[in-house]
Simulated assay, not measured.
Amino acid sequence: MEEVITKKYSITKFQLFFVLIQSQIGIGLFSLPNVVQESAKGDSWISIILAGAGVQFLLIVYLFLLKRFPNDEFAQITQKILGRTLGKIINFFFYFYFIMTGSLSTILMVKLINLQLLPITPNWMISLLILSACIYLTISNLKIIARFFVLAFTLIILLLFLTLFTLLLPQEIQFILPVGNSGIKNILIGSNSALFSMVGFEALLFLYSFIIHNNKGVLKTISLANIFVTGFYTFIVFICLISFSPDQLNLIREPLIFLFRGLSFKMFARVDLIFLSFWIVPMTTTIIAYLFLASKSLSNEEKSYKKIVVINGILIFLISLIPHTDEITNLFTKYISYLNYAVIYVIPVLLLILSLIFKKHETGETA
């Protein structure tokens, strides 16, 4: 029965490419140039490239682990390697991480929409509308979610197209010169900050068993997705670096939105508002991804999946209702960045090492 369900809800490698991209690109795009340049300054674009290289390394580590259990979901892999009890504890840790990250994405999205588009609308109403749409799509099967992500990718292409028009605005290449002036230490610190905006690639851990013919071609797919995300972020950061001075970037929290305000056409006076209206969809896909991952980290039973999605959606909604000042939001972001290290780096690497040491693989018995 499980094999039939897996085939029914499976995705192609083509769809995997878009799912990974949509899981990574979202609300973090707007503040990325501001966050990275705090340490890397004009070399922020180098930090993005290094962060992309780090993501590629981690994706390869994930793939080595997953290939040892090609038909098992990640919640089963942890139990096979660590034992049933410890495995369930790790799964709950992943669940907590996904809920918190999904909540943070919702909070940041609601604050942005409230500030830029709907200043009079109550935050709880914006959050309710967003999460209702997210729950509605997430309770469907993975194949439908993947198809929606493929369609939503067109809006990322739209952003790239709009960004090209900013090249008509005054630019100053001197803002990024001399290259490497920030020093290796600051560039690496900036790279670490950039990695937080690039999270979402850990979705591979939970998607691998659903990929059709996952025995070949997956490395190429995830590498191309990572190259696209890295190139996309590098381009956006580079445009912002040559458009604003370092002092200006320190003061502007969302430089990309501010940059679009400088664009004006005969038919469109506020390009930034038009762009934000469209970008709600890519921001929503990130929340959908974390809703799906949180639900899959607790159970692989399809009977309880829809119920868990609804419960998780309500939980994220309740968390988003907590009053969030800038200080609380920054503190929330800081603690979630600590969770990132455990979920993205430590646990997958340890699982791979333990699976090799104790020779655990799909045909092995649970410890």
Rank of each mutant, 00 (worst) to 15 (best):
E3H: 03
V4I: 12
Y9T: 11
I11R: 01
I11N: 00
Q22I: 08
Q24A: 10
I25Q: 02
G26E: 09
I27S: 05
F30M: 05
L32W: 09
V35D: 15
V36Y: 08
K41D: 14
I48L: 14
A51M: 07
V55M: 06
Q56E: 07
F57I: 15
L65V: 12
K67T: 06
D72T: 03
D72I: 01
A75R: 02
G83R: 01
R84F: 13
R84M: 03
G87F: 05
K88P: 06
Y97S: 04
L104N: 09
M109A: 09
L112P: 08
I113K: 07
L118M: 09
T121Y: 01
N123Q: 04
M125K: 00
L128W: 13
L128E: 12
L129H: 08
I130M: 15
Y136G: 11
Y136C: 14
T138S: 14
S140W: 07
K143W: 04
A152L: 01
T154F: 10
T154D: 03
F161P: 01
L164D: 00
I173Y: 13
Q174W: 04
F175A: 05
V179R: 03
N192T: 07
A194P: 14
G200Q: 05
L204V: 09
L205E: 10
I211Y: 12
I211K: 08
H213K: 13
L219A: 14
T221Q: 03
I222P: 03
N226T: 15
I227M: 11
S243M: 02
P246M: 04
D247H: 09
N250F: 01
L256V: 15
L256I: 15
G262L: 04
G262H: 11
S264D: 12
S264L: 00
F265G: 02
M267A: 15
V271W: 03
S277K: 00
F278P: 02
V281A: 10
M283H: 07
T284Q: 02
T286R: 08
A289I: 03
Y290Q: 07
L291S: 11
A294E: 05
L298Q: 14
Y305I: 02
K306R: 15
V309H: 06
G313T: 07
I316W: 04
F317C: 03
L318P: 00
I319K: 07
L321S: 13
P323W: 02
P323A: 13
E327I: 15
I328Q: 06
N330C: 03
K334R: 14
V343M: 11
I344F: 13
Y345R: 01
V346K: 12
I347V: 14
P348G: 10
P348D: 12
V349W: 01
L350C: 12
L351E: 02
L354Y: 00
K359M: 05
E362I: 02
T363E: 11
